[in-house]
Amino acid sequence: MSIPPPDRSCAPAPSREALRAHLLATGIAGRVATTREAGLRSYRLFATRDPRVLLGLDPVGTWREDEVLALMARRCGVSADPRRREGADTVDPDRTLRALDRFAARLGQAVAERRPVLFGTGHPHRLLGFYAALARAVSAAGGHVLTPAQGRSVDITTRFGLRTHRIDYVQGVALVRADADRGAACEPGAHCHSPLPVRVVLQAAAERGGPLPGLVVGDHGWACGAGQLGFEVIGPADTDDPAPFVGEAEGRVAVAVPLDDAVRSACYEPLTRYVLNRACLSP
């Protein structure tokens, strides 16, 4: 898919030091808005194999609650103290930067090797711009951005029960929209944790004879669902989403970038520029 370039020029890529300061100033890392209570609840649910937090991952290990907490402390920088039950949690900005470096290296390698790339998000209200800028850069470099299953329906269990959604693409990024919102002002899409959309997309690509993605860039179910099926996956994840980090620890997610995934969308622009610079891609 050819994606038109943005209608404005991008600012220069920030230095590592400047980006670290930006992460802390915006709450993408450092003291984040994701609460300790939310994180611990997710770790507990993950330990019981609750599908709402597995995000399509089928863990190999037992992953008791204390093991999940210890992993998140190592990968993200949250407090390892199980007695700390309340308040804001933390993301170590240096862990975020190191993960962004690995993320950029994987993206740059995929483009250099001319591997098709699939972008997908369950967090379009915050992260769509981040992915769209990466998709534009991949396309501009001659890469193939995949967009299979446009308009396909998928039934997803929500807190309101089973609801029909449809696959859509915005600037090369896959997302879902609730069928009930068809024809309504629904930009930029629905918040979704389910792995079902990526399964529908991958099945559609296989049915038409490919190509299949050589790299999947996404979050939530897009990342874990694809990783569970053996695709190379990179993407961001919050401190209350342990599945991508467990997937990384077990070798089914290549890179999970620890950060708060719900700050204002404009705050992720410096991360985009940093990644593109490290990946040797033009914005």
Rank of each mutant, 00 (worst) to 15 (best):
S2Y: 03
S2P: 04
I3R: 02
P4Q: 09
P5V: 14
R8S: 09
R8E: 11
S9W: 04
P12C: 08
H22T: 09
L23H: 09
A25D: 14
A25W: 09
T26V: 15
I28Q: 08
A29K: 01
G30R: 02
R31Y: 01
A33Y: 05
R36N: 07
R36H: 01
R36S: 06
G39S: 10
F46Q: 05
F46G: 13
T48P: 00
D50P: 11
L54D: 04
G56A: 03
D58S: 13
P59K: 11
G61D: 10
W63P: 11
E65W: 09
D66P: 05
E67H: 01
M72N: 09
R74Q: 15
D81P: 07
R84T: 13
A88C: 11
D89N: 12
D89T: 15
T90G: 00
D94P: 11
A99N: 01
L100R: 02
F103D: 03
F103N: 03
L107Y: 02
Q109E: 08
A110C: 11
V111K: 01
R114T: 00
R114M: 00
R115H: 00
F119V: 04
H125L: 10
L127P: 01
A132P: 09
L134M: 09
L134Y: 08
A137W: 06
V138E: 02
S139T: 06
A141Y: 04
P148F: 13
A149K: 04
A149G: 05
Q150E: 13
G151C: 10
T157Q: 08
F160Q: 11
L162M: 06
T164A: 14
R166D: 01
I167P: 01
D168F: 05
D168C: 05
V173G: 14
V176G: 08
V176Y: 03
A178G: 07
D181C: 07
G183K: 02
G183Y: 05
A184M: 07
E187A: 13
G189P: 01
A190W: 07
H193C: 12
R199E: 08
V200H: 02
V201M: 15
Q203D: 15
Q203C: 08
A206G: 05
A206I: 12
G209K: 10
G210S: 06
P211I: 11
P211S: 06
P213F: 12
H220P: 00
A226Y: 06
F231R: 07
E232I: 08
V233S: 08
G235S: 08
T239I: 15
A243N: 04
G247T: 00
E248D: 12
A249K: 00
A254T: 12
A254W: 04
V257H: 06
P258Y: 05
L259K: 00
V263Q: 06
Y268G: 07
Y268L: 11
E269I: 00
P270M: 11
V275C: 04
N277V: 06
R278K: 13
R278W: 02
C280F: 08
L281E: 01
